[in-house]
Amino acid sequence: SDQAVYNWAHAWRIGGVCALMGGHNGGRPRALSDDVVAIALEIARAEPLTLVQIARRVEQAQAQALPCKIETLGEALKRAGFTFKRNRFSLKKSAMNGSSR
């Protein structure tokens, strides 16, 4: 786009080659701060919890609601190496066989 070309040319004029190699500093700010992610990681490491339980404990620790969707918290925890399983609510086969007779 025209804006991207302008930004590159402006960076070249201000800082030369080093300004072009500096990396990306633009874009949308993160929805979760590093502090909130650190709190969530501590809670997740303490005991096995679901994502909803982790989110509730983070909200309690901060005394305010999460500034994003719960999925965003899940993605931040996945980037840190945590995985989540969906719970299945199903009847056990042995319980069904005994009651049907």
Rank of each mutant, 00 (worst) to 15 (best):
F82I: 11
H24S: 05
A55T: 02
F82A: 12
L20G: 05
L20H: 03
I70F: 05
S94Q: 12
R30S: 14
S90T: 15
L20D: 01
A19Y: 00
F82L: 15
R56G: 12
H24A: 09
S90D: 15
K85C: 03
V58Q: 03
E71D: 12
G15D: 05
A76T: 03
C18A: 15
A63W: 07
S100E: 09
D34A: 12
I54G: 03
R101I: 08
S33R: 10
A55L: 06
L66V: 04
A44M: 07
R79S: 14
P29K: 09
V52D: 06
T72R: 04
G23R: 00
F84W: 00
F84C: 07
A61D: 06
L51T: 07
Q62R: 13
V36R: 10
Y6D: 03
I70L: 15
P29V: 03
N25F: 03
K92A: 15
G23L: 00
S99Y: 11
P48D: 03
P29N: 06
R30W: 06
L20R: 03
A31I: 02
A19K: 01
G22H: 01
E42C: 15
R30K: 15
M21Y: 03
G15F: 00
F89N: 12
Q62G: 04
K85Q: 10
G81F: 07
R101G: 15
